[in-house]
Design a protein around this nucleic acid. Structure first.
Lengths: 233, 233
DNA sequence: GACCGCCTACCAGTCGGTCGGCAATTGCCG
DNA sequence: CGGCAATTGCCGACCGACTGGTAGGCGGTC
């Protein structure tokens, strides 16, 4: 009987597990969130949890991988199709902000922020993730470098500028609470402006001001990632 | 014999303990760094460690308190004596950047970043620390608010701007490695410029450009905080 | 001889993870 | 359609390793 209405909203146990573990890892930290905690949050026992999951490490790795896959799909890949560095930079900032800010959706994006830097994971997994982060960082830095070559950047080191922007963006995950005074859209708008002003020459901003007030016309139009497709791989 | 030269550099066991525990908490996370780890790093056994320290919690609380005391001394208190909001903002950004960036000194400043947000600490301690953070944040936000009232801020919400700046500044602790391509002074200079440009109106920056290339002429004149004086209390 | 610095030995509890088994569902065969 | 085996989803009990923390003692300095 319950099966009938679950057919319409078929959240599987695995979905639940990933959702709750993401939440708990973010709330309590990876080491402090025990497998029993996760099992309890899902409503099964620890042994039951291990029926679906190989190890705590696998959980963490899949979670991070999934978060990065979402980032690839929503930010990194679309950005690579934008040839103009200024358009690209604007898109990357805005899309990344949405990516971080929409953590109030299904599963936990802030994993990106919280799980890579403290310490867990085996060295090999850490290395793979560090590598992935490095690619993202370098892409941003090179975009800034291209802008500098065009004379549209202030006299700052592209690497320093890239880290500054990333800090601003990622920190959003730490302070943004759902239901605050401002909507996520308002926050993203304002922060995009702040971010662009921080590195671009004022005259460039002046002449390109047009683009300060619309959502990015990027992939993933309506749908939310169902938290499942990309888990494997 | 060793005692003779130690008299000149009398790092006590307690100093060692706090230095190593700060390092380990930052490296591995609070929960993942065990008391045995810390004892081992200091060169004593766990029981020996407990001769000096009451609990792991006390260690964390003292560490955070100490880090915030340093922040008070080097950033917050001096900033309160600066009446002009623009001078104040510039000082706060620069001093805070130095505060975060000089983690390569004796003990671990990045505790500020790493220990307050994951999860450890008893609820009461957490509350006290959250309160302290709130005071700092509000002070920055109000400084930005004062600038906005004077028409020197871009059209952004002071709260959003404050969080953006804090993210940029605190993130420095995550990416800065000693011995990198740029010196800490170069990084702070550039980031100060980036930070100020992100929120101030371009014409304000133009007219105040003077101050973009000198260390702050603030309290704590020459000397570097010896990271020891404030340990007690 | 009192105190300080520190160790050996040892708690009780929790961790990640395993094992065997038991219901219920599913798939297959006649 | 019935029957029945295989599979799925899950649990209770348990393990060895390790956790934060303690008790008591031992050697050296004042």
């Amino acid at each position: 009987m319950v099966a009938e209405l679950r057919a319409q909203n078929p959240e599987t146990r695995i979905d639940q597990i990933y959702r709750e573990s993401a939440r708990l890892f973010v709330e309590k930290g990876f080491a402090a969130a025990s497998m029993s905690d996760i099992a309890g949050a899902v409503g099964i026992t620890k042994a039951g949890l291990y029926h679906f999951v190989k190890s705590k490490d696998e959980l963490a790795v899949n979670l991070i991988t999934w978060a990065y896959d979402v980032y690839d799909r929503d930010v990194f890949n679309p950005a690579q199709d934008i040839s103009d560095p200024l358009d690209r930079l604007r898109f990357m900032i805005r899309a990344h902000l949405y990516n971080v800010g929409e953590l109030r959706g299904v599963a936990g994006n802030p994993v990106t922020v919280l799980l890579d830097d403290p310490a867990a994971l085996t060295p090999q997994h850490r290395r793979a993730i560090t590598k992935r982060k490095a690619v993202y960082y370098e892409f941003l830095r090179d975009t800034l470098g291209a802008l500098k070559a065009r004379g549209e950047l202030n006299d700052v080191d592209p690497a320093v500028a890239a880290f500054s922007l990333l800090g601003m963006i990622l920190w959003l995950a730490r302070w943004h609470k759902a239901g605050g005074r401002l909507t996520i859209d308002e926050i993203v708008e304002q922060m995009t402006e702040i971010a662009l002003r921080s590195v671009l020459r004022p005259d460039v901003i002046q002449s390109k001001k047009i683009a300060f007030s619309r959502r990015p016309a990027a992939p993933t139009p309506g749908g939310r990632p169902s938290a499942k497709r990309t888990a494997a791989r």
